[in-house]
């Protein structure tokens, strides 16, 4: 693994890894922790980034784009993932569409919002119940490897996957 002190910030590593894997479409529901990544993809003409009203809408767009030959990454926060069990179970998994999701993790390591703390506990059990690949990124020096390999495996196995960005990586949101 590379020396963390010499590495760019997490959002730059993520953006570069998206590019290396030809991820161009970024439908998202905004999140404060994801802001530097969101601003990065908006500023780079390689990407087409836009907000959606709901996370499941963003998943539908990503599914359609995949079938049309365009790769996406859907960005959201933990509470947004809680709205997705049905669309993952009824569209992405049975149709074998490798929808890729990136979730900024709320509800742990200093959460101040009770609702976020509760809904966060549903996230990994839902992913496990759907037998969906998911990885939690905690370290800067592992970020590029995990993002790259997760995208590759999702595409190769035609299966959805989720990347969870831990507060250990991003700093999270410790203040209201």
């Amino acid at each position: 693994m590379p020396d963390a002190a010499a590495l760019p910030p997490w959002h730059q590593i993520v953006l570069d890894t998206f590019k290396q894997n030809d991820i161009r479409l970024i439908p998202y529901v905004p999140d404060n922790v994801l802001r530097p990544l969101i601003e990065g993809v908006h500023a780079d003409p390689f990407f087409h980034a836009f907000t959606c009203a709901r996370e499941e809408e963003a998943l539908g767009i990503a599914a359609g784009a995949w079938m049309g030959g365009l790769r996406s990454m859907v960005l959201m926060q933990t509470s947004g993932f809680a709205t997705l069990a049905n669309v993952i179970a009824s569209l992405a998994v049975p149709a074998q569409i490798p929808v890729l999701m990136m979730v900024s993790e709320r509800g742990t390591l200093g959460e101040f919002n009770q609702g976020q703390a509760l809904v966060a506990r549903t996230m990994r059990p839902v992913m496990d119940a759907l037998a969906m690949e998911h990885h939690t990124i905690t370290r800067l020096d592992e970020t590029g490897f995990i993002v790259d390999r997760t995208i590759r495996q999702a595409v190769a196995t035609q299966a959805p996957a989720t990347l969870i960005l831990s507060p250990l990586l991003t700093g999270g949101k410790a203040q209201p």
Partner: peptide
């Protein structure tokens, strides 16, 4: 949304 994804692709 699926149709929008196809249309963008």
């Amino acid at each position: 949304p699926i149709a929008l994804g196809v249309a963008l692709a």
